[in-house]
Design a protein around this nucleic acid. Structure first.
Length: 437
RNA sequence: GACCCCUUCGUCUAGCGGUUAGGACACGUCCCUUUCACGGAUGCGACAGGAGUUCGAUUCUCCUAGGGGUCGCCA
């Protein structure tokens, strides 16, 4: 039975790098039928915040990463906050004391005596990595105030929580020999490691807190991404599933996951491609699903949805025009209000030719006689009105679009007319005629 | 400075001794089209450099360069 964990430190937002680390651990657990544990490494009292911890849980849940043991989930190896496990650490420190592997400095800090022998790290991604006997100073494991250091608690908890595998960022590789030294001192067997490549900024520098696209909540949840799209993209940054195509469902990703295929070279983050994935997932949504996903963005933009069926059809009609949910309000605002603004060039074009008013009136006359109001009948009415005035439908369509939406681009005119209804269509044409004199 | 990891189109990557070096994103062009898009077609575009091993290196070895990481009483 495999047991893996994601062990974030609540000092800030959930990062894409951390998210992907969590993702790979989760994928491995689900693939192997193992257990995915969430352990909060809040040993740095000065920098940890409850807000950050909640934000990280929120981000993980948004991505669809559920944990079998951890905060809110319970489990047999808790507590899952390191700040609540001091007694366990004290007991483990006593073991090292008994074995003569630690000593206390004048300051009160406790240091672990390195074995100072060569140590081999067996890694699923990097292979066997040899580290020569170290010349570094012995490692501090406990601060003078009695609190413990990352390397120590990380190892102790991996032993206590019976971890079998550890997927973590490659930035930890250089310190792994220290962890193995500790495992050995405790007489425990180290887990199997898999150090995954880092995610870099587009310019190749290390991605950190302030960089664009680094925070899951700020850059993705609030920017109109769908979690399944981000999930999919992140998986492919550092891993190539052996299959055709790149748009892969959660289930497919789980089935295909193989740690041996994880790359060992860092990858740069490409927001363009991440958005492309989002667009792909967006277009695969049903009208109802799309409305469900973008409702909060429409309301946040200040528009009120009074008819879910119309709203769903409206957002569905523009789904292939956007790649982010945040772009949708600007495309559909006129479905939710009658006092929509006219784009500058739209009004200019309407006023450009006197016959425009004639054509619009003709279309309105046609619409008025319709007893059946559907996309098809609206379309026919437009074509007939155009034909009656010896112009191509293509000449009338833009005018109607301008009148009904105030915009120069959007869904088919017949779709707009159908959705806003016959009465509103006639009213909007009348209003527009009044504006262009 | 020491140690560790890495190096194929701009980006993500396929390739695991012999390929016209393939795909995706981005970008250009064309088609479709009432707009904007979608979609379809097509084009542009890479093996960091140098030695070796070999009949033959993108692929194996070494060196150099470049990038990233680690050397905390941060995690």
């Amino acid at each position: 039975m495999t047991r893996v964990r994601f062990a974030p430190s609540p000092t800030g937002d959930l990062h894409v790098g951390g998210a992907r680390t969590a993702l790979f651990n989760w994928l491995f657990a689900r693939k192997t039928g193992g257990t995915f544990i969430l352990r909060v490494e809040d040993t740095d009292g000065a920098r940890n915040t409850e807000e950050a911890a909640q934000g990280i849980l929120k981000g993980l849940r948004w991505l669809g990463l559920d944990w079998d043991e951890g905060p809110d989930a319970g489990g047999d190896y808790g507590p899952y906050f390191q700040s609540q496990r001091k007694a366990i650490y004290d007991a483990y420190l006593a073991k090292l004391e008994a074995a003569g592997r630690v000593y206390t400095e004048d300051s009160g800090a406790v240091r672990f005596k390195f074995s100072r022998t060569p140590i081999k790290v067996h890694d699923l991604v990097c292979g066997d990595v040899m580290f020569a006997a170290t010349e570094e100073p012995d490692m501090t494991v406990r601060r003078p105030d009695g609190s413990y250091i990352f390397h120590f608690v990380n190892v102790v908890d991996d032993i206590e929580m019976k971890m079998t595998h550890v997927f973590r960022g490659e930035d930890h590789l250089s310190n792994t020999w220290k962890h193995i030294d500790l495992f050995n001192a405790f007489g425990a067997t180290p887990p199997t490691y898999a150090h995954i490549p880092l995610i870099l900024n587009p310019d190749g520098t290390k991605m950190s807190k302030r960089d664009e696209g680094s925070a899951v909540e700020k850059s993705y949840m609030n920017e109109g991404f769908l979690p399944e799209a981000v999930f999919n993209y992140l998986c492919l940054l550092g891993w190539t599933p052996r299959t055709e195509g790149e748009k892969l469902s959660r289930e497919a990703l789980v089935n295909l996951f193989d740690p041996a295929e994880i790359h060992n070279a860092n990858a740069r983050f490409d927001m363009h491609k991440c958005q492309w994935f989002n667009a792909q997932y967006l277009r695969a949504l049903s009208a109802e699903e799309l409305l469900f996903s973008c409702r909060r963005f429409i309301e946040k933009a200040g528009y009120t949805i009074t008819d879910d069926a119309v709203a769903a059809a409206a957002v569905y009609s523009v789904k292939e025009k956007v790649s982010l949910l945040t772009e949708i309000p600007a495309w559909v605002h006129y479905f939710f209000r009658s006092d929509y603004p006219y784009e500058d060039d739209v009004m200019a074009k309407l006023k450009a030719k006197p016959e425009n008013a004639t054509l619009l009136k003709a279309a309105a006359d046609g619409f008025r006689t319709l007893t059946d109001w559907s996309e098809t009948t609206v379309q026919s009415a437009i074509e007939e009105a155009a034909k009656a005035h010896s112009v191509k439908p293509g000449a009338l369509m833009p005018l109607l679009r301008f009148a009904l939406s105030g915009q120069s681009r959007g869904p088919g005119v017949n779709t707009i007319g159908h959705l806003i209804g016959q009465e509103s269509t006639l009213q909007r044409i009348e209003n527009t005629l009044g504006l262009i004199g």
